[in-house]
Design a protein around this nucleic acid. Structure first.
Length: 523
RNA sequence: CGGGAUGUAGCGCAGCUUGGUUAGCGCGCCACGUUCGGGACGUGGAGGCCCCGGGUUCAAAUCCCGGCAUCCCGACCA
């Protein structure tokens, strides 16, 4: 054919290597950025001419999305639309989560749910409607939430005697139930969780990040002592949330305590996980609250202690939402779309049959991979062009793609593409399942390492609030900043994302001396 | 709530200033054929309450009045 040399130049692992072993150069080839030199150019001339260096790798670079560097919010909207994650609902601020977006959420849910149960919590389901009066029982709570409440005043064709609130969160209804369920100290701790939708009226919605209705998980617990409640608050923060977010989703986050300004309405102290997105803005991924005895007092959650005295319980609440999907997109996504960490990906390996005659071989591969415990999908939609399908899986962020075509079958090989690097390799068909499964761990840790490196490069130590300028995290002494400095920063669009001890640990509820404030612009 | 803009095919838009053929274009969709190793091509086709209501006129997507809806810009939140 005469195209061999051109191909070899563009693809270090050309499918017809001179040694004829079909092995290409899997272990030794340097990380060649195959599309770096031809980004965004016009399509290559018809193949068969040993002309330009780029061959088909050139079109591989053609971006379907607005580049991140050009307009990050637009890039985000493009990814959500083109990867088929979600779209706007008919009513303002609502969201339709599409199959791929929901599959990602279901994976997050599964990982969280397993850990929530493993730490002794039981799932329950509480009502969507809450009597308005419940909200009013806790002064801080109503005050914090009333601007974003959706209130039902009419139903069944009549005006309601007492309006109903569509739950913005469930501390109040659950507090009411707890007051009946908790009688003696033997009923404690009471460890509950629910998966639910909640409604908070939003003026500026953004798919996944801020919508009027959203899906989340909310945990609610009651304890006999402050210390137990505090231990629960931090257990969830570290061993449920951070474990999933870091080890499954591959996102490093800062764990710390919120300032009084940013505290949850009704909490004594709020702990948070804050992650840095690729545009240098911070995103709050989850919160865990020590509610002290505020809700116990408001709802009469009391118990008889071992000495027969009546005590108020100590409660906590904690939640993460489908916003995590938004965080995932913005933490890992690149100009070609989503990049899913394998531990999370609904599909870890997609096997793409270039033409019909490759389908049987693909089915065998899918069988081997599935047998090895890899979440695998076959793409045998040969009525659609190869390119369209390749782009689609790239947008969707599937970590590994195996392409099998007629030429591969002849050579006993296939093409492997890893999404984290967008590098193509030709490997033998024999053992390909095992080889691609082995890659998953490397991709997982690579994405986390990349995000960590990006964050540390974007974190700056400063001495004064005035020095806070631009993107990324700014560290400065909380003693020096104070509540006044916090207010000044707010006017310039910056917030104190969280307070952390000098040694990186999470501060105690009342601890205030020697803390570091992490400041950033946030979503 | 204040300011700016937009409603025309599933999506993105043109047409409106200066009223007048059958309301167009791109993408998508359907059929057939050729293709398939990075968003294929050809031919044919389907798809419209021109946001709603009124008015002006022989004639309104186009002009006038009134609604409604959506989007963008200024104070909060998983």
């Amino acid at each position: 054919m005469g195209t061999g040399s051109a191909r070899l130049r563009t693809r270090p692992c050309g499918r017809d290597p001179a040694d004829g072993t079909g092995r290409g150069c899997v272990p030794s080839s340097p990380a060649v950025p195959i599309f770096a030199s031809c980004h965004g150019r016009t399509p290559p001339p018809p193949s068969g001419r040993p002309g330009p260096v780029c061959d088909h790798a050139e079109t591989m670079a053609k971006s379907v999305l607005t580049p991140q560097s050009e307009d990050f919010p637009r890039w985000y909207a493009d990814v959500v639309a083109k990867a088929g994650l979600a779209e706007n609902g008919a009513a303002r601020g609502t969201m339709i989560i599409k199959p791929w977006g929901y599959a990602i959420w279901e994976r997050i849910q599964a990982e969280l749910d397993a850990r929530i149960k493993a730490t002794g919590h039981d799932n329950v389901s509480f009502p969507l409607f809450i009597p308005y009066s419940f909200l009013q029982r806790e002064a801080q709570h109503v005050e914090g939430f009333s601007p974003e409440l959706a209130v039902v005043t009419h139903a069944g064709g009549e005006e309601l005697a007492e309006p109903l609130v569509v739950r913005p969160t469930s501390e109040t209804v659950i507090g009411d139930a707890m007051s009946r369920w908790v009688q003696g100290h033997r009923d404690l701790p009471l460890l509950l969780n629910q998966w639910a939708n909640v409604v908070r009226w939003e003026l500026r919605p953004r798919l996944f990040l801020r919508t009027t209705e959203f899906l989340w998980q909310e945990g609610h617990t009651a304890h006999a002592t402050f210390d137990e409640a505090q231990a629960e608050t931090l257990l969830i923060l570290h061993h449920v949330y951070d474990d999933v977010i870091r080890n499954v989703m591959g996102i490093p986050s800062l764990l710390g305590r919120k300032t009084d300004q940013e505290r949850f309405a009704g909490a004594d102290s709020t702990y948070t996980l804050e992650a840095l997105m690729r545009d240098g803005k911070a995103l709050q991924l989850g919160t865990s609250h020590n509610l002290g005895q505020n809700f116990a007092k408001a709802f009469g959650i009391t118990y008889s202690d071992a000495d027969g005295g009546q005590q108020h319980a100590w409660t906590t609440s904690w939640g993460v939402s489908a916003r995590l999907v938004g965080g995932l997109i913005m933490a890992h996504g690149d100009d070609r779309g989503l990049r899913l960490p394998p531990a999370l990906a609904p599909v870890q390996v997609v096997v793409l049959a270039v033409k019909d005659e490759a389908i049987a071989a693909c089915e065998r591969l899918v069988g081997e991979l599935t047998h090895a415990g890899v979440r695998t999908r076959l793409d045998g939609r040969t009525s659609q062009s190869f390119g369209r399908r390749a782009v689609e899986w790239e947008l969707k962020g599937v970590p590994v793609r195996l392409e099998v075509g007629p030429r591969d079958l002849e050579a006993g090989s296939l093409t492997l593409v890893r999404r984290d690097r967008d590098r193509k390799e030709t490997i033998p068909l024999e053992g390909a399942a095992a080889a691609s499964a082995d890659l998953l761990d490397a991709i997982q840790s690579g994405l986390l390492a990349e995000a960590e490196a990006r964050r540390s490069a974007a974190t700056t130590d400063v001495d004064t609030a005035a020095a806070v300028e631009g993107a990324g995290f700014f560290r400065l002494p909380w003693d020096r900043l104070g509540t006044g400095g916090e207010a000044d920063l707010a006017e310039r669009g910056y917030t104190v994302r969280c307070l952390v001890r000098e040694d990186g640990a999470v501060p105690a509820p009342q601890e205030n001396d020697g803390l570091i404030a992490y400041v950033a612009r946030a979503y």
